[in-house]
Design a protein around this nucleic acid. Structure first.
Lengths: 250, 250
DNA sequence: CACTATCTATAACCTATGTTACGTTAGCAA
DNA sequence: TTGCTAACGTAACATAGGTTATAGATAGTG
């Protein structure tokens, strides 16, 4: 089964809509199959991200190793799925990826994807932005899976803090957060009562001071340590290679 | 603050790398600000998806209303964030979106984004595929938040079943799943023991028959009913408008 | 100013799920 | 065959977090 018929385009019903250049790219991919053994690692977290993989045969999965020794699996990949496109827009991998059983994959460089975008750097930027925003969801997923309410809420508040700081809406470690405890509970998947309880705990620990919408984090770094916050997915600039490539095309 | 300096491109350091066409698009957006009141709905789940919004002022959030009466919030959007790009590649919205407080947003049509992609329909396809795969993560997030282990595992198995069926790896409602209970527990964020317990429950209910890697779902529809599975994000073809647009450009 | 709705805090009790432990089975190698 | 190991099933107990209830605080409104 050729990539053209199956993988990226399967179900998208645009096989007939590919330009000759697009077809050439797809056919080129099939020249480079990589045979993988069971449990073989595709890449480790924080390795340089420069390609994604189309799974031809076998199952794979992406995961994050956590400080408490466990790991959170983000996704299982079946034949036809694309592994690693979540990192498009980042310099380094946000999660590791491994095969489960043996299989075959086709690597596809970000550079190749880049070229497909033609002249519009805006399109690249939007795609990268979309992937970055989705990265926030993945982080939330990790927290929902393996951490206590205490750590989840701390993580949530620190994320909001960082995002607001990025747009200049934090002053003296304080910010305005127009959320009720009920909204927060709906976001974190816990009961409103427990959100209140957990806020009380954080207050007693001196980590969070809150009066209705006014929130202050007296020691943001302490919070960050508590939750091993990986801020690369919020703060990081576009990968240097992106900037070069983008400018070079004008 | 102009969009050019801030929103999509903020932190991406590609302001200087935009083509004149890109800049024209961005400037055009600012001509159409939409003023929103507190709690105003941007769109409802399963409405037709044809645009995304850049948040200029105020907070917004996306959420899914669940059958048990609660709702799961997927994400809070702060100024500068893009709401609704997760649905790019789908005909209908996968989640609702509302303002939290009052604010201003800039709508941006999928059509406009489409045009940015230039001649490469492959690039469009890849982006759409990426968003669709991310949609799976969002669904998982929803399940982690609000449902019991029983429902989560049922949902997980049904998702695998549908994905395998799509690629022709299901026969007589049976398939091969090379996952240990430990891997499943790492994916669902529950203990391996509880995965085993839950499998036992599903077996007793006659919903899942499993012997090691061999899994059979005697009545997939019963499973689907149990978990109110929204299969649009797995099975759906590219939106009809996509196909038209893609072909028209060749 | 008082009235009301909304939000928040805390307590008491209950349940789903985690933890620890141990025994069974399947597969594989010597 | 025997033994070894990884995966699985199940029981007993512990606990984080859900549920229900009540009361205090706050902001908005006439």
């Amino acid at each position: 089964m050729a990539l053209l018929d199956t993988v990226v385009m399967r179900g998208l019903s645009i096989q007939g809509a590919l330009s000759p250049e697009d077809k050439a790219v797809l056919l080129g991919l099939e020249l480079n199959p990589r045979h993988m053994s069971a449990s073989e690692v595709l890449w480790q977290e924080s390795a340089v991200a420069d390609l994604f993989c189309v799974v031809k045969e076998g199952w794979a999965y992406s995961y994050r190793n956590l400080k408490n020794g466990s790991k959170q699996i983000l996704k299982f990949y079946l034949p036809g799925d694309i592994v690693g496109i979540r990192d498009f827009g980042f310099t380094r991998r946000l999660s590791s990826a491994s095969m489960i059983n043996k299989g075959v994959i086709y690597p596809f460089s970000y550079q190749q994807l880049f070229e497909l975008f033609g002249r519009s750097n805006l399109a690249v930027g939007i795609m990268a932005t979309a992937m970055r925003q989705q990265a926030l969801l993945s982080e939330r997923l990790i927290y929902l899976g393996k951490y206590s309410a205490h750590e989840q809420l701390a993580h949530f508040l620190y994320e909001i803090y960082l995002r607001l700081k990025r747009i200049g809406d934090v002053e003296d470690n304080s910010f305005l957060m127009p959320l009720t405890q009920e909204l927060i509970s709906d976001a974190l998947g816990m009961s409103p009562v427990h959100v209140s309880r957990t806020f009380s705990m954080l207050r007693e620990e001196g980590l969070v001071i809150r009066d209705r919408q006014h929130v202050k984090l007296p020691d943001p770094e302490a919070l960050a340590r508590l939750v091993e916050f990986n801020d690369s997915y919020i703060d990081e600039l576009l990968p240097p290679t992106f900037s070069e490539l983008l400018r070079a095309r004008l």
